[in-house]
Amino acid sequence: MASSSLSTTERRGIPGAQFVEDVETYLTQSGLDVNSALSFLQERLQQYKLVEMKFLAQQRDLQAKIPDIEKCLDVVATLQAKKGTAEALVADFEVSEGIYSRACIEAADSVCPALLQKNFNNAKASLEVLVADLQFLRDQVTITQEAQNASKR
C-alpha cells in the first residue's frame, strides 16, 4: 500500500487532510520522522477544532437570526395587509431582554420588505454553506485522526 497520491483539497481556506494508507511511504514522502509527523497531525487537529468552534458559533448566530427575520417579515406582511384601512395595528415588541413595550401603528403609508427578504435569503444561504463547511471540516478531522492513529502503530 502507498499513501494516497490524490492532492489534498481545501474548502474556503480550510486545508484538506491527506489520507494515509501506508505510514512508511507517507513519512518518506513528507520527510518527517514519526514524532514530527505526530506533532504536525496534532497541530492540524487543533487548528481544525478552532475553526470548528468558530463555525459552530456562526451557526448558532444564524439559527437565532433566521427566526427573528421571519417574525419581522410576518409583521411587515401584516402591515401590508392593513395598508389603506383605518384599522390600527397593536404590536408588542422587545425593547431589551425581558422588557417589552406596546406600540399602536395607525398608518403605514409605505412598507418595503425587500431588504428583510434579502437578509433572510442571505442568512439561509449562509447557513447552508456553513453546514457544508462543517461537514467538510469534520471529514478532515476524521482523516487526520486516522493518520495519527496509523502513525502511532
Rank of each mutant, 00 (worst) to 15 (best):
L62W: 05
Q42V: 02
E106P: 00
I69P: 01
R60S: 15
C104W: 00
V76Y: 14
D68Q: 14
A81H: 07
Q46E: 11
M53K: 13
I69L: 15
F55I: 00
Q63G: 02
A114D: 14
K49D: 09
E106M: 04
S126K: 04
I105T: 03
I99V: 13
K49Y: 06
G98N: 13
K83G: 05
V95H: 07
Q42W: 01
V75P: 01
Y48F: 15
N121P: 01
R44H: 03
E52T: 03
E97L: 09
K65N: 05
E24S: 13
F55E: 01
P67Q: 03
G98S: 14
M53A: 11
A37S: 15
V111N: 10
N35T: 15
R102W: 00
A57W: 05
A17Y: 05
V76G: 03
I14H: 00
D61V: 01
K83H: 12
A125R: 11
L45S: 12
F93P: 08
L127N: 10
N122D: 15
K118D: 14
E43G: 07
L89M: 10
K82S: 14
P15W: 09
S30Q: 13
N121R: 09
N35D: 15
N35L: 15
T25N: 13
Q29G: 06
C104E: 11
N119A: 08
A17H: 07
K65T: 05
E24L: 09
A91S: 03
L127M: 11
V23R: 07
L115D: 10
Q59E: 14
K71H: 07
L116E: 04
